[in-house]
Structure formats: C-alpha cells, structure tokens
Design a protein around this nucleic acid. Sequence first.
DNA 1: GATGAATGAGGGTTCATTCAT
DNA 2: TATGAATGAACCCTCATTCAT
Lengths: 221, 221, 221, 221
Amino acid sequence: MSRATAEKKKRTASKAARRTEPGADKRQLILAAALEEFSQSGFAAARLDDVARRADVAKGTIYLYFKDKEALFQELLRAQISPVIVMLEALLAGGGSQDAVPLRQLALRVADLFVEQVIATRRKDIVRLILTEGPRFPQLAEFYYREVIARGLGAFRARAQRALKNGELKSDTLVQFPQLIVAPALTAIMWKSMFDKFEPLDAKALMKAHIDNLFDREERP
Amino acid sequence: MSRATAEKKKRTASKAARRTEPGADKRQLILAAALEEFSQSGFAAARLDDVARRADVAKGTIYLYFKDKEALFQELLRAQISPVIVMLEALLAGGGSQDAVPLRQLALRVADLFVEQVIATRRKDIVRLILTEGPRFPQLAEFYYREVIARGLGAFRARAQRALKNGELKSDTLVQFPQLIVAPALTAIMWKSMFDKFEPLDAKALMKAHIDNLFDREERP
Amino acid sequence: MSRATAEKKKRTASKAARRTEPGADKRQLILAAALEEFSQSGFAAARLDDVARRADVAKGTIYLYFKDKEALFQELLRAQISPVIVMLEALLAGGGSQDAVPLRQLALRVADLFVEQVIATRRKDIVRLILTEGPRFPQLAEFYYREVIARGLGAFRARAQRALKNGELKSDTLVQFPQLIVAPALTAIMWKSMFDKFEPLDAKALMKAHIDNLFDREERP
Amino acid sequence: MSRATAEKKKRTASKAARRTEPGADKRQLILAAALEEFSQSGFAAARLDDVARRADVAKGTIYLYFKDKEALFQELLRAQISPVIVMLEALLAGGGSQDAVPLRQLALRVADLFVEQVIATRRKDIVRLILTEGPRFPQLAEFYYREVIARGLGAFRARAQRALKNGELKSDTLVQFPQLIVAPALTAIMWKSMFDKFEPLDAKALMKAHIDNLFDREERP
DNA sequence: GATGAATGAGGGTTCATTCAT
DNA sequence: TATGAATGAACCCTCATTCAT
C-alpha cells in the first residue's frame, strides 16, 4: 500500500507540473511510456493501461494518436530508429566519402558512439525489442532490414572494400561478413539485460578488444 | 452438433493411428508442440490451446504433465539445455584436459558442432527464447547463467589462460572477454530468425571467419 | 434457442429503460444480482456470468467494482450487515439504557422487527449465506462473530443480567445462554428456505410463542 | 517431486495394508471420505479427486458405486439418515406408545442422545449439509421433509397432544410449534461449526436449559 | 471389478477497444 | 481533444466424467 500511495503522490505532483509544461506533446509522452512498458514486458504482455498511467493520460487518449496497440508499438520502434539511421549515414557516408579517417579509427569511433548513445541508454531496449519481437512482426523486420541493416551493412561493406583496395585491410573477411562488426554489440545488449547483475560487462572495452582483433592481424607486416 | 460429431470422428481416426505409435510419450509431444508455439509467438502470446492442438492432446492433458503455462515454458527451456551442457563439458573439459588439441582446432570444432546441432535445428529457437524471454523470468536467467554461461565461459577462460601460457595465444583478449567467442553465434541466431529470408547467412563460414580473426593475429610471427 | 432469444429481447428492452434510471448505481445493481445468485446457488456454484446478466452489465464490469468473486461475496455480506448492527444497537443500547421498556416487550419488538425486516425479505438469504458459507470463509466468520454475534449477545446478556437483578427474570437461563433467544429465528430461516412449500411456518407466531415460553415461567407468582 | 514421490510411497504402503482388510467395503470407504470432503467444502466445491484420494481408491472407482457426484452426495445424506429415523421412531413411537415416560423425561433423553450421537460427532455435518445444501436439491429436501421432519415432528406433535390432554402440558405451544423443540439443536450445530473456536458452547446444557424453559412453566401450579 | 490417464466443457479473469460525456 | 466506465472476446485452468487396459 505504501508503495502505491507513494507512487500516486509522486504522479499527482508530476501531473500538476506536467499540465503546465508547454511542449508536453501527448504523443511523445505516450511513446516514452510505451517504450518503458514494452521493453519491460514485451509486446504481448505490456498493458496499455500501464502505458496510459505512466504517460499520465487516459486510456482512451492513446487511441487518439495511435490506431491500436500494434500501431503504437511499430511507430515507437520506427520513430526511434530515425536518429540512428541519420547518425549512421552521417558517419559512414559523410565521414567516409573520402576515407580521410582510417576504417579502424572510424570503427572505434562508431563503437564508442554506439555504446554511449545506445547500450548505455534506454535506446538499447529499442534494439532489444526489435530483436525480440521482430519475428512476430514481419513488416517491422522488413522495414528494419531495409532501412537499417541493408543500408548500414551496405555502407560498411563498401567502405571495407575500399579499405581492402588501399591496403588498410589485408583480408576480405569484413567484406564478406560485415555482420561481424556488430556481433559483440548485440551480445553486449543481451548480456546487459540478462546477466549484468551476475557479472557486469564493460561494453566499451569489449568492443575495443573486438576491433583490435579485427584490425591487428591486418596491420602486422 | 454435426460439426462436433464430425470433428470427433476425425479425431478418433487420427487418434487411433497415433495410439499405436510406440515411444510417443505425451510429455514429449507436448514439449515439442510447446517449443513450436512458444518460439513462434513468445511466451505471453502463445496459446495453450494451440499447443494442445499441435500435440494432438486435450487442453487438460497439458496440466497432467505441467503445473501451468510458466512451468511448461521453463521446463521446456531447462530440458533442452542439459544436452548442451553435457556437450559443452565433454568438449572443453574432456578434450582440453591435456590440451592435446590446439585451442583453435577446438574452437572450430565447437563452432561446427554448434552450427550443426543448434543453429541449423529447432534448438536455435530455444536459445532465442532464452535471450528473448530471459529478462521476464529472472529465475530462468539465473539458472541459465549458473548452469551454462558461467560454466561455459569459465571453462573456456581457463583453457584460454593455458593457451596464453604455452604461447598458443599472444594476447589476453579472450581471457578477459570470453564472450567474444560466442558473439557471432548469437548474431547468427538472431539474423536467421529475422533477416535470413532477405539475405541468407552462412553461419558456419561466419564462425570460421571469426575464429580465423581471433587466432590468425596470434599466430603470425 | 427460443428461450435465449426471448430473454435477449427482454434484456434489450429493460436495458433501454434502465439506461435512463437516475441513481441506478452499477455497484448496487451488481450487489443485488449477486445476492440473488449467491443465495440461489451458494458461493461455489454461483456463476458471475449469471450475476452479470441479472445486473444487466457485462461480465468485465463486475471487476471494475470488485477484485474477484470472493471479494464480491464478502462485500455483499458485510454491506448488508451494517444496517443490522445499527438496528441492533439502537434497540438494545438505546431503548434499554434505562430499562424503561420491560425486556419481554423489547424481545417481542425485536422479534417482530426481525421477522418483518429479515425473515420476510431477501435479507434472510444474507443470514443463510453466512450460516451456510461461514465455515469456508474464516475471516467472514470471525468478522461476523466480532461485529454481530459478540456484540449482539453481549448487549442482550447485559440487559438480561439487569432484568435478573430487578426481578423481571427469575432464572439466569438467558444470561447463560443468550443464544436461546435467537434459536427459533434461525430455525425459521432454515425452515422457510427448505420446507415452507410443504408446510408453511408462521415465523412471527413461532417467535411469540417462544418468547412467551421464556418469560411466562418467570412471571408466574 | 520428492513430496509427490513420498506421498505415493506412503499411499501405496497403506493401500497394501488396507487391501487385506477384510470388510473394507469400498462403498463405505467412499461414503466416509465423501462425508469428510463434502462437509469441509460443500457440495459444489468438493472435489471427487479428493474423495478418491481420501478413500484410497481410484477416481474411476467412485463411478462403479455411484452414478455421479450428485448421486454420491444424495446417497450419502440418505444413508446416514436411516439410523436417525430408526432411533427417532424407537424413542417416540416405542417409548411413548403408552406414555410410560413423561414427555419431559423423554425430551431430555432425546436431547442427550442427540448431543452425544450427532452434535458431538461427525454426524452433525450431515445435518449441516442438509440444511446447507437442501435448497439446491429439492428432491433431497422433499425426501428429508417426508422421512424425517414430517414423521419426527408428527410423532412429537401427537405425543405433545396426549401430554396436553393428560395435563402434563398446560399450553398447546408445542403442539402448534413442535419445531421449537429442535431449534436450539440446530443453533448448536451452526454455532459449533462457526463460532466454537471463539466461544465454546455447551450444547447439552443449552438443550437442558431450553427444555426446562419449555416445561417449567407448565409444571408450576 | 479397479485403475488413472485423458478428455473437454465450463467458469474466473484480463485487457484491448469503444463511446457517451 | 480528453476521459474512463463499460464491453465482451479470449485465454488459462479446473474438474466431473469416460474408457482402454
């Protein structure tokens, strides 16, 4: 009871505060609450009741902004992907167009960015949700493949190809399997949500060790 | 009424056929059906009705073998883990006790085994389910960490330590991050269940390339 | 089927009528329907489906007002007890504080009240349910003992004690066994719900005869 | 698992022991177990599974002796009534045919017998069940009314009539309301199953006080 | 007769969705 | 727009009953 009471009080207070918030767009509130609930419980087990409560809106309000539960879910995942795509393209296409930065430096920079901006934040749950619920939402999987995977790996593959040509890379491993570059990142995300309490994982160090592995062999004379 | 009657007849017929099946243990039938349904829909969205139908038993029969939906789910995941553990220990402890086989060979052998026995079979769904539902079932995550992760990585880490001492490994990367060895395997599992239809992935080649990466750098003079 | 159709029509009609009913509080509707169903079938055999239908609400609506079937049951019994307690105390404490009214008159008055307000009404089913289901709901039995039995018999016992002292009563029978005063009332309730159709019982006359019995002996010289 | 295994072993053992019991009539075992379960849970909530376990027979066995759950229930109540009827008639008809024993003595004797043979034993649960479930089983109520109530009260009423004629009784209260004689007995049964743990009731003393009440007034000059 | 695995109808409960206000 | 009471389909689970052995 005390927990509920405390929570209620807090919510009531924040409600008053939020009411007056100027740009407190309901849609954003709902999306934020939905991320929380969906990543906590998964799509099927999440309750719109809880989303509404957390967003501090009425249950019916959700339906003013989203057709149904699935639309909310998919729009949530799509909305959050946009910045990732932008970031991705900025890094790969922009920074790499002239290959001013060596691929290894680029990889390290992206890895750091990914750890800081995704793995260390709530955003990692977006990735988890996509991995987790993707098989149940074919359109989502397809969308994600087209917009993120194909583009991201494609760009990386192109960049690796150039690195291979200009001698920065000695083997074509990364050209054939660009997936290798992200494997430890996915592993880190899964690890953090399941095993981190038993054995914490330093994601940044893991990524660095992995990249060192991929490039050190190449750079030896 | 005619529908019910017709259905009953049909079922009776197919039942008669199956009745004679020799080792068709009900419990196993249910577990197999459950794997199918759970990996298709996830825990929350799977319907026991469908499990029953797929196993060709009545809904109530499930409850003769499992306390409830969650017990069915957890026993499913635990039951399938045992062979993995056995395999794991046989390979690492057994084959590696005298380190007769170089770690690289061992890794390649394990990778092949994992691809053939897990990734290429229905068993990969077990791994997916654990990764996917683990956060919602803390006991399961803990069990899995204790029985599989801690043991597996522990054994691998010990073996890597010895490889480092006897010069087979030049860096301590794998001692610090034994997770690296499995990262591409997880990635392959996720890829296969979401993106394989868009772009098939050769898991075995991926694993080989990864292991080559890890060891080649060490073996250069 | 014709029965169902007929019922549906009736319900639709009455629903339209009820929609406009002013104070038709849903909670009260549900409680009234629940009393009907529970006293007809007992707790275990009563179906919430029927309660809902009788209250003319959807099944889910019940759960907006009551946590579950048991809560509905217990709140039903507790809600109905309050007026009884109030009545009880008004009569015994109020009217008896100065013992202005002889105990016999008081008993007759209470008996009449009980017959009219309880035995002759739907309320007798509340008493039946408590007697009937009490053993299965220990909290309910305790609540009832504390709030009604202990208080009611206690007050009556005190009043009887005074009557004994001031000579109105000659023996201490009622002080020792205040339960005696209510025994015929319980018997009447049971009789009415089982045997009244075979042999009607005049509860008021029964109570009067009983009270005469208890007091006549005392009043003889 | 260990609990289940242990229980199974125990049951198997005791079963072996019972197997050799000579007159261990299955039907009686089942009836005894049924009484236990029905009076603990009521008709609707009692589980035949538990009856079978308690009787140490298989679930199917029950159906060899009783058509269904309701038949078991009704036969249970009817079977147990017979001795009561016999006793009743022996006392009233037999002992009272010549009115050798004064009615008051007879009443006291019956009360004692009832307390000892019914209220103090498992048999009180039979009475409770009849009172409790009667309304749901019209045939049972009718059977009970015809075989027990009508006969018992009839015999008592006849005896009271004679007592009135021969001066043993001064008023016709008991002729009009023979139910009065049993009211405290029913009250005692209800009390014992609900409130006895809060406030124990001396049923025998209660009955005696009640009978004194009924007869003292008559016997005063 | 006796067993107990199997059945499946039935009921309690949840929760996405609607709609009158 | 926003609300939240109301809905009812859907799903888990129980348990009386059956039947092959």
